[in-house]
């Protein structure tokens, strides 16, 4: 019990500001609209990708990566700052075996649900109520991972 109290104390109190976060809500909204309008949330489009019967998803992801690479390079080379004048820093990803094992497991789930985490949220917004069950299950999956994380190979 004492230990728990100490742990709670060790986490500093952070206040969530709605005003400061509103801009992310706006970016998310645009993102959600794109997801639905380009049918990225469609189970059929994901099936077409994995069955190699349509170029659509490869086009979407490929274009996004190209635009992303150019943007990141421009930010780095031109030393572009954030709107509040901060230097932009992107943490490097560190390789571990989880990217292989976890990656494969996520691939299985992606094919079954036809959705990665982003589309899960957009599908719920678009009125596919049963996907809320998939989302709850995904949260449970994350929780179970957290529970066993120290025992899993990394």
């Amino acid at each position: 019990m004492e230990k728990t109290i100490q742990n709670i104390k060790s986490i500093p109190e952070t206040k969530i500001s709605v005003a400061k976060n509103l801009k992310y809500l706006v970016v998310g909204t645009i993102f959600g609209i794109v997801f639905v309008k380009a049918e990225i949330i469609s189970w059929f489009r994901i099936q077409e990708m994995f069955r190699f019967t349509s170029f659509h998803m490869y086009g979407v992801i490929g274009t996004a990566v190209v635009v992303g690479i150019i943007s990141v390079q421009l930010i780095k080379r031109l030393n572009i700052k954030t709107i509040s004048g901060e230097k932009i820093s992107i943490p490097d990803k560190v390789f571990n075996k989880g990217q292989i094992y976890g990656g494969l497991l996520f691939g299985f789930g992606w094919a079954l649900t036809g959705a990665c985490p982003g589309p899960l949220f957009a599908q719920i917004g678009a009125g596919f109520g049963v996907v809320a069950v998939s989302l709850l299950s995904a949260i449970a999956g994350t929780w179970v991972y957290g529970y066993f994380s120290e025992k899993l190979p990394k």
């Binding site: 976890g102 497991l105 789930g109 985490p117 989302l135 299950s137």
Partner: peptide, 20 residues
Amino acid sequence: IVVGGFLVGFGTRWAGGCTS
């Protein structure tokens, strides 16, 4: 619906990220 969702949550966290 359920097993698929679970694999998405478990797998992405283990992999340290998803498609995004």
